[in-house]
């Protein structure tokens, strides 16, 4: 929000302030939702998937609205894209967990 060409009026501010409260309320509802689906759904996989979807939405909202990433210029996106890519590269290693030869069944219970 660095380009403040015109000075915003008091009305603009109170509108913005109201939007922030509403946004926050939305985030809270999201968290309440992910809590309740874990009580409602029986399958672990489905509540993990749904829970992650809700979390992703909340994160996106925080990033783009609360952290006003939507108003930033392209250069930030350039390095955030790489960051996200490398983070996923990091997650790739979990794939290796299943093929880990050091995970011996023989030890798992005595």
């Amino acid at each position: 929000m660095s380009e403040e060409t015109t000075t915003p009026s008091a009305a603009d501010f109170s509108k913005q302030s109201r939007q922030i409260w509403l946004g926050g309320l939305g985030l809270m509802i999201g968290s309440a939702l992910s809590c309740s689906i874990f009580n409602l759904l029986s399958s672990t996989t489905s509540h993990i998937v749904l829970g992650l979807l809700i979390a992703a939405t909340q994160v996106a909202f925080q990033l783009f609205v609360f952290m006003h990433l939507k108003n930033e210029r392209g250069i930030v996106y350039k390095f955030l894209v790489f960051t996200v890519f490398f983070t996923f590269a990091l997650f790739f290693l979990t794939h290796l967990a299943q093929s880990s030869p050091l995970h011996f069944d023989a030890f798992s219970s005595k």
Binding site: A89, L93, L96, A97, S100, L102, H103
Partner: peptide, 12 residues
Amino acid sequence: GSPLLYQHLFWF
């Protein structure tokens, strides 16, 4: 735990 996890994080 997994010794491989360390190696992955380290070499990353």
